[in-house]
Design a protein around this nucleic acid. Structure first.
Lengths: 220, 220
DNA sequence: TAACTTTTTTACCATTTGGTATAAAAATTA
DNA sequence: TAATTTTTATACCAAATGGTAAAAAAGTTA
């Protein structure tokens, strides 16, 4: 579609890219914590260590910046979410192996991109005003295929007669909660931060739940 | 502490109560959709069908109003969350019966108070600035007792050797997601709204997952 | 080095926001 | 009915917000 211009890597273009991603990271943190309305351009600029007007030079308005943060995150996200399909058709992995890997990948997303997850959560809870279209065009087709795959597993007797749609809802909720609701867990576990070992325990626990739920044996 | 004044039920006091709860409902809807910063006093007033200055007469600032919305919701919430403890000690219900009821109650909260759930979710995702203290003082003690109860079940061989803390995290996440992420589900299920039947299916699915996860037999 | 492009800074502004001060109106009580 | 309290409406404001206009500064290229 668009003419791909092979960027010359001048000092300027390098700086620009670096600054752009610095802005995006700063914005992500703020949007995660304060939501869209609660994050001012001024505050984002300060967090990125530039002037507000310079921020506006790079992202000409707040909505554009917000959408960039969202889509940058979804690029990573969706790729992982399509895991099931990709691995299910190519290889001949068992449902257990596939789902086990799927849960692990989702948990890693929560651990590695907690802010992205939170921005996404705020957005969905708010009715997905900026994202609904994307959900319809990108997530739903993939979801439909994944649901069908699980149904074939059920037909083949590979897993219990579970509810495929709600299986996905439960897996997503159970894994994303470790990013979105981390503060609640910190309080309840009496820890200042969720550590790597907490995520490991969580991954084992959630994986075991899901394995038993679909009727697979638990691997010790 | 405070002198309990037995309110005389004049026409004024009745109107006041009715108006106050109308404001709280309107505020809840807005906070759920737009978050704290995204909901202006003006917009809340309009939604409650009064003037902004009149709103301020009833709730002298935004933070106070927000906290009232939160605590009104938590009163309902926490009562249901203490379900386990209450029923576990008094009656001699089996873990299966208790957890089954617990999941059902949580699902009902998502169905009946989706806005409250969303306000709560926004708040926690944002780091619980207004609620952290409450979580420490109210939710944690209760959580600790519930965890101990599950541990005794495990010791008595009544349930599988599950991870109690993460069992609760998973149940909460899997049930609350039907309030908080309803928009995503609507898109994926291709429905304009989640209906009663969706909640029924969801409740069955989630209950089955949890039952299998804890190692109880599924009731047909 | 000169022309040109990209980036940064400075100054400004209209609108929205949460909130105050105050007086008018309505309801309650003595 | 008069005095008092509660509720509502009017006028206003300082601070913050997203954004524009324009020029200075820095970097790139011919």
């Amino acid at each position: 579609m668009a003419t791909v211009k092979t960027e010359k890597r001048t000092r300027q273009s390098i700086n620009r890219e670096e600054l752009e991603s610095r802005i995006l990271r700063a914005a992500e943190v703020l949007f995660a914590e304060k939501g869209y309305s609660g994050s001012s351009m001024e505050a984002i600029a300060v967090a990125a260590n530039i002037s507000k007007q310079n921020l506006i030079y790079y992202f000409k308005n707040k909505e554009l910046l917000y959408k960039r943060v969202l889509t940058e995150m979804l690029d990573v996200w969706i790729e992982k979410l399509s895991f099931l399909e990709k691995n299910g058709e190519d290889h001949q992995d068992t449902p257990e192996v596939i789902i086990r890997r799927y849960v692990r990948e989702k948990m890693q997303l929560s651990r590695l991109y907690p802010n992205g997850s939170k921005v996404f959560a705020h957005e969905i809870i708010s009715g997905a005003p900026m994202l609904k279209e994307y959900l319809v065009s990108h997530l739903k087709p993939q979801f439909d295929r994944d649901v069908i795959l699980v149904k074939t597993w059920i037909d083949q007797g590979l897993v219990e007669n579970i509810d495929p749609e709600h299986l996905f809802f439960t897996i997503w909720a159970a894994t994303q909660t470790y990013a979105d609701f981390s503060v609640q867990m910190e309080v309840l576990l009496g820890k200042p931060r969720l550590e790597a070992e907490d995520f490991e325990r969580a991954e084992i626990a959630v994986t075991d739940f899901v394995m038993r739920a679909i009727g697979a044996k638990t691997k010790a």
